[in-house]
Design a protein around this nucleic acid. Structure first.
Length: 835
RNA sequence: GCCGAAGUGGCGGAACCGGCAGACGCACUUGACUCAAAAUCAAGCGGAGCUCGCUCCAUGUGGGUUCGAGUCCCACCUUCGGCACCA
């Protein structure tokens, strides 16, 4: 009889339809059950899944399926990060409606996801571009606004000339736009910001709660927040009497200050230079700096330029007068926009002072050295003893930091200060395809929030996106013209839309209650399902999306809308997918699409390979032959079952009644050990280590073990041990089920089981089957392996050593030597040290 | 420059607590089946030496700790990632 071959193309759609029709992956709140929230970062609906998607979603699906089998009430939702620039560009290029274009893409990608056999609860699907969703963006924006956390201000902002919109700091990568790479320039614009800086300390502190996050991501966030503890010091401008504040982390070097530098944008600057001979020169300089992009201006190798203003500042600690300069390297956006120059103890200042022939004064001596006697060759940035510092001389400089700051506090000219590198989050975008910011400008009342019951402010349709106005919404008179919600007079709407990261900062909460139309989500649902227990996504969001989401969660906690401090309990940052060592890209022509893989081998093979080729957090190289290998493995499993279906039929027990199975022999016991070893290994690898690659290899080993068992035994033995072999076969299917859901469902059904394999409990290993009465131990002499032997498991050390000394391979090494020491590691090895 | 991660066969990768380095897979070689091929099954597969049983060498480099180091410590090299005038 010809054996039926493995036909993925037939069985995969069959089972996908079956799961769908039977609502297999619907999740319901059930306080009696322990929940588990598995979430993968939702995609932008570009129209096509790529390998990176296939990888994240495969990882998430294995976890979701595994955890269901472990008995958790698993929520595994999916949706669409559907606002954004590509839809708008498609509209410009092909005249498509962004909404229709997006909807068509969503449909395509959803089909692809289903073809991969991903176990999503589609009843919870959300699309951020639907009014039912973005309405709550607006609602949340107003909540921020009412709490003083959303504000508008005019400031120099990052501008991407190609995307024609502003960018948040987090979205500027190496001086270029995160999306298109174009060099980012400056623009002075009135823009909406969210006050994420109010949460800087908590965002930093609570990183310690995130035990399940990769250290790397936490460090990146820590650096981004950039907390720095220091002192604010008030100098006085001699000529005008103005206060001039600086921030420093080295107040101990205050006596070493020999000049001061202001940022070109410093508000005091025009006053300082007014009417001086150098006024015009400095104005030109400032103009020139402002035209430069942030990239040029802040790149580390840009030349440091300083110009003397002619004014001088008075050092509060010693009344000394020092020159005030203006410099291109001082940033208005950090600290106070003014820095004190201490050339002796800061290498940057040292180089600058040398260039401009400013004095260098040592105020900290390294232990056992005196730097004051000869000219410095470089700055001394280390610790030491204070000198040239009046009453503070002789103090260790760390103490001096406190002493000087306290001294300043007493005289009202300074104090301790913590500063952050983090800036407020700029959320305005001059784009069409985004959430309209729900604000109305009234000539009488100023900016007014759109009342809650008037939400959503709908995005108008039929806008000419090829227009040249600052923002596409300015093209629509119908949209702009409105009435003031307060006084009813004619007013105009805000035309900026929100950064799409706003949408993705809370979508994981909406999944808990996706149809809710009274609130963004019902607290009851969110309190049950949240936090996300396992979040999976790309490392590229280490700062952006993950920081914003943490910020939202903390704000919502303060507002009493959620009761969690952190949204994502555990985070898995998966690596990238490469092909032949290079990034997959159209220009290289090395793109492999999930579609092709599904068509050629089936989803199960594709999933298996992408999980087998590398551990999830590492980069993965796509290799066609590796895919073949996984395909071969699945066919091998298929054949194994097809050839042994008799085990599952009545024929196994010839007489009809269940035959008494004879006691297992050594060969069966070994197979049983392999079985339970795999049960243990796969469980631990998925649950504790996310090492799907080694989990899969353990299943392969078990299959290999079955093959070799069959090689060593005959037909009748298989029949005799059928009940045992059935258990082994069941284990294989169950272990493989999360990875290859279709083939396992088919095999399970063919074995005669009625209920789905995905509704089974995860098999549990038994320690007793892992043990053997004999073990092979390694014998070493002086730490080198010299032999092996089989010993009873719990043979006492003495007996074991006696056997070692008698061992024919070992004896030659011991002859004429003195045994100095012996080491016995139970179950592993015996080492004899001789001299 | 600062912070972080990683360097293991021809390749992807194992080795979890310091205990047989190279699991599993790919590629390759050989045998069986076949008219032949594919598929499949079986066997081999880090390097060198040789009396074919072993011996020596081998986890980026150089040191160290230890009976024993891919694993721990010190220094260095290389690659990748993040930050980068942050006062």
């Amino acid at each position: 009889m010809a054996m039926e071959g493995y036909k993925a193309a037939e069985l995969e759609p069959k089972w996908q339809a079956f799961w769908q029709e039977n609502g297999f992956y619907k999740a319901e709140r059930d306080p009696a059950q322990k929940k588990y929230y598995v979430l993968e970062m939702f995609p932008y609906p570009s129209g096509k899944l790529h390998m990176g998607h296939m990888r994240v979603y495969s990882i998430g699906d294995v976890l979701a399926r595994f955890l269901r089998m472990r008995g958790f009430n698993v929520i595994h939702p999916m949706g669409w990060d559907a606002f954004g620039l590509p839809a708008e560009n498609a509209a410009k290029q092909h005249g498509a409606d962004p909404g229709e274009w997006t909807a068509a893409n969503v449909k395509l990608m959803k089909e692809q996801m289903n073809a991969l056999g991903l176990s999503y609860d589609w009843a919870r699907e959300v699309a951020t571009c639907s009014p039912e969703y973005y309405r709550w963006n607006q609602w949340l924006f107003l909540l921020f606004y009412k709490n003083g956390l959303a504000y508008k201000k005019k400031s120099p902002v990052n501008w991407c000339p190609s995307c024609q919109t502003v960018l948040a700091n987090e979205q500027v990568v190496d001086g270029g736009c995160w999306r298109c790479g174009s060099e980012v320039s400056w623009k002075e614009l009135e823009q909406w910001f969210l006050k994420i800086t109010d949460y800087a300390e908590r965002l930093l502190e609570d990183l310690s709660l995130l035990e399940g996050w990769p250290e790397k991501v936490k460090i990146m966030q820590e650096n981004w927040i950039g907390r720095s503890q220091g002192t604010d010091i008030v100098f006085t401008v001699k000529e005008t009497g103005d206060r001039l504040e600086v921030f420093t982390t080295r107040p101990d070097t205050l006596f070493g200050v020999t000049y001061m530098v202001l940022a070109p944008e410093h508000p005091l600057l025009p006053k300082l230079i007014a009417g001086t001979p150098q006024e015009q020169k400095i104005r030109d300089f400032v103009q020139q700096i402002r035209r430069e992009s942030e990239m040029t201006r802040t790149s580390a190798d840009a030349e440091k330029i300083g110009l003397f203003t002619g004014a001088s500042a008075v050092n509060p600690v010693n009344g000394e007068e020092i020159p005030i300069l203006v410099g291109n390297y001082v940033l208005m956006s950090y600290g106070t926009g003014a820095v004190m120059g201490v050339p002796a103890h800061d290498q940057r200042d040292f180089l600058f002072a040398t260039e401009y022939e400013l004095p260098v004064r040592v105020v900290v001596n390294p232990p056992g050295e005196d730097l004051t006697t000869s000219p410095l060759q470089e700055a001394y940035e280390g610790t030491g003893t204070m000198v040239n510092s009046g009453e503070f001389d002789g103090l260790p400089n760390e103490e001096g930091q406190r002493a000087i700051t306290d001294w300043l506090i007493q005289r009202g000219c300074g104090g301790y200060r913590v500063r952050y590198r983090l800036r407020d989050w700029l959320i305005s975008r001059q784009r069409y395809w985004g959430t309209p910011i729900p604000i109305v400008y009234c000539p009488q009342c100023g900016p007014v929030a759109v009342p809650e019951e008037k939400l959503p402010v709908l995005l108008p349709k039929g806008i000419d996106l090829t227009g040249t106005k600052q923002s596409p919404l300015l093209e629509s008179e119908d949209f702009i013209k409105t009435r003031c919600p307060q006084c009813g007079r004619e007013a105009r709407r805000e035309t900026d839309t929100m950064d799409t990261f706003f949408c993705s900062s809370w979508y994981y909460l909406r999944y808990a209650d996706p149809l809710q139309d009274e609130l963004p989500f019902d607290k009851k649902e969110v309190d049950y399902w949240l936090p996300v227990d396992q979040y999976i996504g790309g490392i590229e969001h280490a700062v952006l999306h993950l920081l914003y989401s943490r910020f939202f969660t903390k704000f919502l906690l303060d507002q009493g809308l959620v009761k969690i401090k952190e949204p994502f309990q555990r985070l898995l940052a998966q690596g990238m997918v490469y092909k032949d060592g290079a990034k997959m890209s159209k220009s290289l022509g090395n793109v492999v699409n999930p579609d092709e893989i599904i068509a050629r081998y089936g989803a199960d093979t594709g999933r298996l390979f992408i999980l087998f080729a590398a551990p999830p957090e590492r980069d993965l190289d796509w290799n066609e032959q590796g895919v073949e290998g996984c395909y071969r493995f699945l066919r091998r499993v298929w054949r194994l079952f097809q050839q042994n279906m008799v085990l599952f039929s009545g024929e196994a027990g010839e007489d009809g009644d269940p035959p008494a199975m004879p006691p297992l022999r050594r060969v069966e016991e070994e197979l049983q050990r392999a079985q339970h070893y795999a049960l243990k290994k796969v469980t631990v690898d998925i649950e504790e280590r996310f090492n799907f690659n080694t989990a899969i290899s353990a299943i392969m080993e078990l299959v290999n073990a079955v093959y070799s068992y069959f090689n060593e035994t005959g037909e009748d033995e298989r029949k005799r041990f059928a009940p045992f072999l059935r258990e082994v076969f069941r284990s294989i299917v169950l272990l493989l089920a999360p990875f290859a859901p279709h083939i396992t469902e088919e095999l399970w059904q063919r074995c005669g089981y009625k209920e789905s394999v995905h509704r089974q409990r995860w098999p549990v290993y038994e320690e007793k089957y892992l043990q053997s009465d004999e073990m092979e131990i390694v014998i070493q002499v002086n730490g080198k392996v010299r032999g092996k032997m089989l010993v009873p498991v719990d043979s006492p050390e003495g007996e074991l050593l006696a056997a070692v000394y008698q061992h024919e391979r070992i004896r030659p090494y011991l002859e004429g030597k003195e045994v100095v020491k012996t080491i016995v590691v139970p179950g592993k090895l015996a080492n004899v040290v001789v001299r």
